[in-house]
């Protein structure tokens, strides 16, 4: 009854191993750091006069220490912040209470009405970091969506898919990241 067990053919084992290896190589993502990139302003010059900015050009966003949002002095909602910021920055119907536009010559785009609006973001020392990031995220999303729209309209592709630096810079110039963070004040204590 005892049969001789046939030799296992292991010649293809290496191939299988390589297949698995390549599968992992393709699917594994390295732990890359992601985040929201910002540029801090240089420290304020104590001798300089504060710039004269018209009320219509400022979009006030305030986050208090219990993470409540105030947009232009009224209670705001994080879910509508993005569309409000977009409307402010784009001002599509040239409303008199929304920011002015200034025609500027942009290489690659020609004359483009650049909004002079600035989003002023102010937070309390007691605001949670999570809420702050959510607000920053919504404001960034507003800018990114406007850039996408312009880029699609002029170049036919999304902003992130623009290949040449000229059109990228043109879109960046036409819709700048106009988010200014107010000089911190100690309002609510720790």
């Amino acid at each position: 009854m005892a049969r001789k067990i046939p030799q296992l053919n292991a010649g293809s084992m290496a191939d299988i191993a390589f297949l698995l290896l390549i599968f992992w190589l393709v699917t594994t993502t390295m732990d890359t750091d992601t985040g929201i990139v910002r540029r801090l302003p240089p420290p304020p010059d104590p001798t300089a006069e504060p710039p004269d900015i018209k009320e219509r050009n400022v979009f006030n966003v305030l986050v208090n220490k219990s993470d409540r949002l105030f947009v232009e002095g009224r209670l705001g909602d994080i879910r509508t912040l993005r569309s409000e910021a977009k409307e402010f920055l784009a001002n599509p119907y040239d409303k008199p209470d929304l920011p002015e536009k200034k025609f500027e010559e942009i290489p690659g785009l020609g004359q483009y009405p650049v909004s002079r609006g600035v989003i002023s973001l102010k937070n309390d020392r007691g605001t949670s970091y999570d809420m702050y990031i959510q607000v920053q995220n919504e404001l960034t999303a507003a800018v990114n969506e406007l850039r996408d729209e312009l880029s699609k309209q002029r170049f036919g592709v999304k902003f992130a898919d623009l290949k040449d630096d000229l059109s990228k810079e043109a879109v960046q110039k036409a819709i700048p990241v106009a988010i200014s963070e107010a000089e911190p004040e100690n309002i609510g204590g720790k």
């Binding site: 992601t34 990139v37 949670s128």
Partner: peptide, 29 residues
Amino acid sequence: VDKEVRMGIVTDIKQELRKVGAFKINYST
């Protein structure tokens, strides 16, 4: 930064970074 951290400490850090001219920052998310 941990999501439950209060902004006070983050604001202090940002002020320090501005003073030394490290303007490029990234909020890790």
